[in-house]
């Protein structure tokens, strides 16, 4: 009575076929990641050394280290963060906590989405026009970081707004009904609970900014500099641009050197990402409601 009919069996075969198909697709997805990492480690690991990380480039960049580029990237990312985080968080607070649902906020939302979709090379050209020339910052860390900041602003706004949205409405209502103003509510209840999410967004932004090349190559990153930047008005080397330079622009570079640079770059990004995941897990575990 309960044995499988011909139709049941056919359905089952189709079922397992599709299941396998989707599984294979998923596995195909992670294959590139593994291949990239594998190649970098195999070909680049031999380049990594103390001197590589903390030394200056030598012999027309065919030998030596990447220290100025490493330091430069940290400068660029830090200054970009100093600009984009306050701006982005403030905008997100306005949009989520103050603004109503009307044509004005819809236009702002549209603008943010579009800003996120602008190609990085266009941001670069904007940066040249606005910061390098119009504001007269010249090719400098400041100009490059501002360009990066504008480019990553949508990420900060969206992730901050999501974490603000995740704070239950009941908390706000409770505060308002005790006579607290919006700002008192935001400062004492909403923000403290949104911080984990905001931090996660910020770290993801860091990891993205670290790897960007186009926005900085015309605005502040230099081909080669034998010294470290001393202020935001200096030019600087950067890891991402350095990778581009040693792999395409300089003759007679030993094969493992570009791979080594790439490995350091991707190592920084992965480190940031895992930090963000760990932080999120830690803070989520602490949260109770």
């Amino acid at each position: 009575m309960f044995e499988a009919s011909e139709l049941n069996l056919r359905n089952k075969r189709t079922e397992s076929l599709y299941r396998t198909l989707f599984l294979v697709m998923t596995l195909l997805l992670i294959l590139p990641v593994l291949l990239i990492l594998g190649t970098l480690i195999v070909k680049g690991a031999s380049a990594i050394s103390w001197e590589f990380l903390f030394g200056y480039p030598k012999d027309g960049m065919t030998a030596g280290g990447i220290f100025p580029a490493l330091v430069g990237t940290i400068w660029l990312v830090s200054v970009a963060l100093l600009v984009s985080v306050p701006l982005g968080v403030a905008a997100a607070i306005y949009l989520n906590e103050y603004a109503g649902e009307n044509w004005f906020t819809r236009i702002i939302n549209l603008a943010i989405i579009n800003l996120a979709g602008v190609p990085s090379i266009v941001h670069a050209l904007f940066g040249v026009g606005a910061f390098v020339i119009f504001f007269g910052f010249g090719t400098s860390i400041l100009a490059a970081s501002l360009t990066l900041a504008i480019m990553t602003l949508p990420v900060v706004i969206v992730s901050t707004r999501e974490s603000l949205r995740a704070v239950p409405m009941a908390f706000r209502e409770a505060c308002w009904n005790m006579g607290a103003t919006r700002w008192q509510t935001i400062r004492r209840v909403v923000l403290p609970n949104a911080v984990p999410g905001i931090l996660t967004g910020v770290i993801l932004e860091v990891s993205r900014t670290t790897g960007e090349t186009a926005p900085i190559m015309f605005t502040g990153a230099a081909f080669f500099l034998p010294f470290l930047p001393e202020s935001v008005f200096d030019q600087t080397m950067a890891l991402s641009l350095h990778l581009f330079v040693v792999s395409t622009q300089v003759p007679n570079v030993p094969e493992n050197l570009p791979y080594g640079v790439a490995l350091v770059l991707i190592g920084m990004v992965l480190l940031m990402n895992s930090l963000s995941i760990a932080l999120r897990m830690y803070l989520r575990g602490k949260k109770k409601w």
Partner: peptide
Amino acid sequence: VGMVFQRPNPLPI
């Protein structure tokens, strides 16, 4: 005028 809600809503502090 204080208000008490259906679902208890203490603040997460």
